[in-house]
């Protein structure tokens, strides 16, 4: 008899008497989801600004405020996506490198290497005068700006002397200020 009762107990398990009421949670989600769908930006046009060390920030500001420049870095870009990098001391050209390959990606890599070399020699200069030809696509201009702006992880480190702390600061940016020199030339 006892065995029979045990069997019956096993066959008909006790019904759970505890149940979470999910309806308020559902109501909240039904409200939240349309609101967030409306406000969410799926194409991100902005990202967090890269924080710069104080010494580098000061050096950039100092370079921006310069009225007369003794050393001018010029970058010309032709319609065939070739580059001409010139460093001028006053009127005379002191450094010149031409990048003229068939592959644009390779040309960009070569240009970046030359820019790193120039930056090594002139760590206090943050401005480049950019002269693209008229048929150059906007997309390619942005790519050149990207190459000139930052030092990549596999590049040799470049240091900026910090007179306040007597300790050199490693640079993460190269030429953040790209000026379209031929804008007002007509």
């Amino acid at each position: 008899m006892a065995r029979k009762r045990n069997r019956m107990n096993m066959e008909a398990p006790e019904e759970p008497n505890f149940e979470i009421d999910l309806s308020p949670l559902l109501a909240l989600m039904v409200t939240l989801i349309p609101m967030m769908l409306l406000a969410t930006v799926f194409v991100k046009v902005s990202i967090v600004e890269t924080p710069l060390p104080q010494a580098v920030k000061q050096a950039i500001e100092k370079d921006r405020k310069k009225k007369k420049r003794e050393i001018v870095i010029e970058l010309k870009m032709s319609n065939s996506k070739e580059f001409d990098l010139i460093v001028k001391y006053g009127a005379s050209t002191k450094y010149r490198k031409q990048v003229a390959g068939k592959n644009f990606k390779e040309n960009l890599n070569q240009l970046h290497k030359h820019l790193v070399q120039v930056k090594k020699q002139h760590p206090k200069i943050f401005q480049i005068q950019f002269l693209p030809s008229e048929e150059v696509a906007y997309e390619d201009i942005v790519k050149v700006m990207d190459e000139a702006r930052k030092i990549k992880a596999n590049d040799e480190p470049i240091f900026l002397e910090n007179s306040e702390q007597n300790k050199p600061v490693e640079l993460k940016v190269m030429f953040p200020d790209l000026i379209f020199k031929n804008l007002l030339e007509g």
Partner: peptide
């Protein structure tokens, strides 16, 4: 949605049919 929710004060939504160039470095 929370991950893609932007907290920036200024949001730019590209116009339909407009393809913007891609860049690795952008400020706010």
């Amino acid at each position: 949605l929370l991950k893609s929710y932007s907290t920036s004060a200024v949001n730019i939504t590209p116009q339909k049919g407009l393809s913007l160039p891609e860049s690795v470095s952008i400020v706010h």
